[in-house]
Design a protein around this nucleic acid. Structure first.
Lengths: 233, 233
DNA sequence: CGGTAAGCGGAGGGGGCCATCCGTTTGCCG
DNA sequence: CGGCAAACGGATGGCCCCCTCCGCTTACCG
């Protein structure tokens, strides 16, 4: 955990003070916008809100992928540490349950997280290994919880992917209510996974059917030209 | 159910034979491509595959929205009739369960369906009323199933939206395995909804975590220019 | 069979996005 | 305080998408 991870070997390690400041500001803004509006946010928007030109943004992060990778690195780490915590729990079922809840909460708190979890991009090897370790950790939690007899026997690790995919869908649909909706979904599914039957449930979240089923991502205002009347006139 | 629904009042009711043929072919191709590749499929792709020019496509369907609306009209109807069937079932819980299963299956069979359910667009009034009726029908199924004591009391109609959103996420993530993954998710959730505890479960579907969490929609080949070495050459 | 309008196809306008180029400004070191 | 390289920013190119315009073809009707 040194203050700053190593940089590309060819790049100069020292940045001018203003450059460093801009870089940090860009990362900060990107974190916010990516979490709020997802991966679709244009680079130009990030640059503008950071108060820098587009060129500056691209100088610090040669591609959008690179920016996303950097921004979500910490989320990765959080995810991995959640799994580690869970593995340390002596109660296998509680460990499994809290790991699921916390990972799903990470997903819900950050619109871009899911999409960037694997970064969608090649992903550096180090990150890739970290991811693999987290996945293996979840599989281990699954085995333990099943051995403890609390997780139903027909549960398979792929069901975790199912869960996360479902969670992703709910978050995308619920908008502002994402975290609440996610909690309720997870509550239902953990109940379904539990060999001993259902427990209490998080409260319902106001999620609309239109959203559930696929309202367009962001139809703010479409002042497109009139149509209908032929151009004749 | 006349052979052809009424047309716009200003448009000529009679089409030339070739025009009619082309229109049908376009609709057919659009059905296929929208179901397979989702709403993102470009109009040009539809036109090309239908063997017509882009202008022809736009002459028959003045906007992409209009095309999607027409193409998914029948899916709407199928959805509504599923609810009607379920309402006719004397066993309230079975009606609820099969309605959920069948609607989710509709979603799974057609990538574009979710996104087009409300068409994302204003949607004609008739369609809008149909949709509202279906929603009300589902709410009624919910009440009956709860009255029968088989659906847990803390279930709320919004949980149906939750379910469909989750289903949407799973389908988007599972790709080819969408229908299987959807079935398993629905199996879990119906188990969680059931006041009497879990039943048997559909088999697991091979869904990868990368997909669950947000692999890019379609990264076929990106032969983009090299980067990495600074432009300094 | 011939005239006419309905129908056709492709080029291109307009917009959004990612990424780059180049003239200008500015922090840094002596 | 002066000079230089590092850093800046806006304009720009390329790509993809939706949609429209316009000259040519072809089905239909008398």
């Amino acid at each position: 955990m040194s203050a700053e991870s190593s940089r590309l070997p060819t790049a100069p390690a020292r940045l001018r003070a203003d450059a460093r400041h801009n870089r940090d500001r860009i990362a900060e803004v990107a974190r916010d916008l990516l979490a709020t509006r997802g991966l679709d946010v244009p680079m130009a928007a990030i640059a503008r809100r950071a108060g820098v030109g587009i060129a500056t943004l691209y100088r610090h992060f040669p591609t959008k992928e690179a920016l996303v990778e950097v921004v979500f690195a910490e989320k990765f780490a959080a995810c991995a540490s959640v799994v580690d915590d869970a593995l340390a729990d002596p109660d296998a079922w509680r460990g499994f349950r809290t790991a699921v809840e916390r990972v799903c909460a990470l997903q819900a708190d950050d619109h871009g997280f899911s999409a960037a979890f694997v970064a969608a991009f090649p992903a550096p090897d180090a990150r890739e290994r970290e991811r693999a370790r987290a996945v293996e950790g979840m599989a281990e939690l699954t085995r333990r919880a099943q051995a403890a007899g609390r997780l139903r026997a027909d549960f398979v690790p792929a069901d975790l992917a199912l869960l996360m995919a479902a969670n992703r869908g709910v978050i995308a649909a619920a908008g502002r209510a994402g975290p609440a909706a996610s909690k309720r979904l997870v509550g239902y599914l953990l109940g379904a996974f539990d060999a001993e039957g259902a427990g209490p449930l998080p409260p319902p979240a106001p999620i609309d059917l239109l959203d559930a089923v696929g309202r367009p991502p962001a139809p703010p205002v479409r002042p497109r030209a009139e149509r209908g009347g032929r151009p004749g006139a």
